[in-house]
Design a protein around this nucleic acid. Structure first.
Length: 276
DNA sequence: TTCCAGGCTATGT
DNA sequence: ACATAGCATGGA
């Protein structure tokens, strides 16, 4: 057990496998930042958490501690997984570099819209577009909740065009319409392959975006999304042999199996922080 | 100015 | 099934 759950906060007692900078800046979610005191905060769905560093622990202060225990995957021991992954000698130093990364259990429809926006885009602009999208979400405290599917499908094409999302605006509108009468809780009961087939039919969702949604929004930790950064880290550190993105994905998923998603995050974080 | 960013759709072969 | 042009926007 790496945490204690209290009424209004969580105490994370193992700093070796929980680091807010690593967790939030490795690109799995986009609604985060630092406050005036330099504390990281994150907004997910309807809830907000602020992470305060103490000498021997982190305190996660939030309006829903139970939600954030699941969100930060605190019942999983990442040190065991890290030992397994470090058997790969190329990955090993990258695990040490991003030692505090955890795979977040984010909201599924929030991930669908977030990663449609992410395609062929940069993280700074993705964050700005998502912030604007959230202005139609209800206000809680001093922040906007992520919009519900009803709010998203009620929004006009003109609204989506006002986000500065470029050509992705019509993808967002089409997906909002497609999800209007879908219960994602029912989709979650399907197999991974069946969920993938459902996701990839959505306009603006291809193999990479679907893999990200499965990994972060549906808890499918055996998925290894391949984007430009992963392509780069593959050629820089693993092989110079030319492979397509689906081939690179299969290569890594076969190498890292049920922990592919976490391995992918170490690689992505390392390359983004250290690559040019 | 040109290139690139957590790629996808549409349209060829 | 695989290859590639075009795509909106903004920052380096």
């Amino acid at each position: 057990m790496i945490y204690k759950l209290e009424k209004d906060k969580i105490i994370v007692t193992d700093k070796s496998q929980f680091n807010p900078k690593h967790i939030l800046e490795c690109g799995q979610v986009f609604r985060f930042g630092t406050d005036e005191q330099g504390n990281y905060f994150v907004i997910s769905k309807d809830f907000k958490a602020t992470i305060i560093e103490k000498e021997n622990c982190y305190e996660i202060v939030s309006n829903n501690p139970e939600y954030f225990v699941k969100y930060f995957d605190l019942d999983t021991d990442y040190n065991l997984i890290k030992e397994k992954l470090k058997r790969n000698k190329v990955l090993s130093p990258m695990v040490d570099y991003g030692y505090g990364i955890r795979i977040l259990k984010a909201d599924s429809h929030e991930m669908i819209f977030s990663f449609i926006i992410s395609q062929n885009n940069n993280i700074k602009r993705i964050q700005k577009i998502i912030d604007k999208l959230c202005t139609i979400g209800k206000v809680s405290d001093n922040y906007n909740c992520f919009p519900t599917i009803a709010e998203l499908s009620d929004a006009s094409l003109e609204f989506y065009q006002s986000l500065g999302a470029g050509y992705r605006d019509k993808f967002l509108k089409a997906t909002a319409d497609a999800l209007k009468d879908v219960d994602l809780e029912e989709i979650k009961k399907l197999s991974t392959d069946e969920i993938y087939d459902f996701l990839i039919k959505l306009t603006g969702v291809g193999p990479k975006v679907a893999s990200c949604i499965l990994l972060f929004g549906f808890g499918k930790k055996d998925k290894f999304p391949v984007d430009t950064w992963i392509e780069q880290v593959y050629y820089n550190h693993f092989s110079s042999e030319k492979r397509s993105r689906p081939e690179i994905q299969r290569y890594f998923e076969n190498e890292f199996k049920e922990n592919s998603g976490l391995a992918q995050q170490y690689l992505f974080y390392f390359e983004r922080e250290n690559g040019k």
